[in-house]
Amino acid sequence: MHDSDRQPGIFDGHNDLILRLITGKVTAAQVRDGLDSGHIDLPRARAGGLAGGFFAIFVPSPPEYGMSMEDLAKPSYDIPLPPPLKHPYAAEMTDQGFAAARALEAAGVIRICTDVDTLETALDGPEMAAVLHIEGAEAIGPEIAELEGFHALGLRSLGPVWSRPTIFAEGVPFRYPSDPDIGGGLTEAGRRLVAECNRLGILIDLSHLNAAGVRDVAAISDAPLVATHSNAAAVCPHARNLTDEQLRMIADSDGMVGINLATGFLRPDGQMTADTALDMLLRHLDHLIGILGEDRVGFGSDFDGAIVPQAIGDCAGLPALRAAMRDHGIDSALMEKLCHRNWMAVLRRTWKD
């Protein structure tokens, strides 16, 4: 689903477009027709070759716990995490997220896909191919009763936390410099959540999860380990990034990492600023391929949820990413793997299609 000749479409591991709908900033019709703000709309997706991706349903914290991007542009920072969300609020907002996804589908913006064959076909279609993802499992109770209903609505990927603590696990703060070894591992409810995701074939996203939680998922999950939008801590020592030990665990599971375009997780100085050269992204690419191999790396942009390099700007600027990779020596076969084939392969292994 792209207008750029002979450029492989990009399937993206994470975006926050749905959050813009549930907070009333945009409508599905506006996303279809084109926006003058944000990172994603259908015309820009077609122009840039954004063929699809994981569309996150994320429940925002109340405004008094908001986080400013300016806070992440300092030489060092440690942003206090918001408190856990109350289940009724999270459930209501998550329902709104599923409704927003259906509105995007009805408007012809996305095609919600629940198996890889459909997903691969949709990559060449007029809409963006969409995998529905919940980022932070606050809408699920300790008995995990809600998960099967969400699966029936199309959910195929879930992150136990978005940094905020949940009844399942602890996330990492927005802290630089830091590593992710902060806090305890999965709770008993978290272990039940992993088991039920395995049973249903729902991908378990390690992004935002702390080191102890990642180790616990690795110990009990029978699925590939996947971090949909995370980078290499060896390049940028941020709590949100993955250590080499974690990358080796992901490689051993035949899993995958999607490179996050958020500049604060790309830059060695940890600063969230658009004035960030794509060379910094290529350093993460080289490091991840060096440990994970060519078949386990892709992209997870964090569009509509972060500041990305100004050379890309929004999804219409994705040709600049491909051009930087070509100039870096990435050949056409590896380009296709990085742009979408690796995602299709790990989803096939995870969903057991």
Results as ranks from 00 to 15, higher is better:
V31C: 07
E92D: 14
P88I: 08
L132Q: 07
P319D: 13
C113V: 06
M249R: 15
P80G: 11
R322A: 14
D302K: 02
K352F: 04
G24P: 01
I182S: 07
L292Q: 09
T27N: 09
H39F: 03
G141W: 00
I79A: 12
H287D: 08
L206N: 03
G52E: 11
D95L: 12
V194H: 12
P75M: 11
L281E: 01
P160I: 09
G201V: 04
F54M: 15
A137L: 00
A324T: 04
G264D: 07
L17R: 04
A234D: 08
M1N: 13
G184W: 10
I110T: 14
M272Q: 15
K86H: 12
P268H: 14
A90E: 02
T243H: 10
T350D: 10
P83Y: 13
R111T: 15
S230H: 03
A262I: 00
A106H: 13
D302V: 00
R341H: 11
S4E: 13
M128K: 07
G52M: 07
T228P: 00
G300E: 06
P84N: 09
V308F: 07
E245T: 11
A139E: 03
D179A: 10
R102L: 06
D117T: 11
F303C: 05
A212K: 07
T228E: 02
H14W: 04
R20F: 05
A277F: 00
F55H: 15
L147F: 05
P62H: 14
D71P: 00
T228F: 01
L19N: 05
P180K: 06
L338D: 08
G270H: 06
V31I: 06
A91W: 03
W162H: 14
D252N: 12
H238R: 02
L347S: 09
L35T: 08
A211N: 07
S221N: 05
S76I: 02
A212Y: 07
K86N: 13
P82H: 12
K25C: 01
G255Q: 05
A130S: 11
P75G: 10
W162C: 08
D3F: 08
L261Y: 14
L123G: 11
S230R: 01
R111S: 14
L193A: 05
A316G: 13
D331R: 03
L278D: 08
C236Y: 06
N198R: 09
Q7K: 11
I204R: 09
D295C: 01
T187H: 08
H340C: 05
Y77N: 09
G136M: 06
D181I: 01
D115H: 12
R349G: 05
V194L: 12
K337R: 15
M335H: 03
E105N: 07
F303P: 01
E120S: 14
E143H: 10
I307A: 13
R46N: 04
L334H: 08
A103Q: 12
L225Q: 07
M1V: 04
R199W: 10
D124P: 00
H133G: 01
T273Y: 02
S37W: 10
A333S: 13
D302W: 02
T187M: 05
D33T: 06
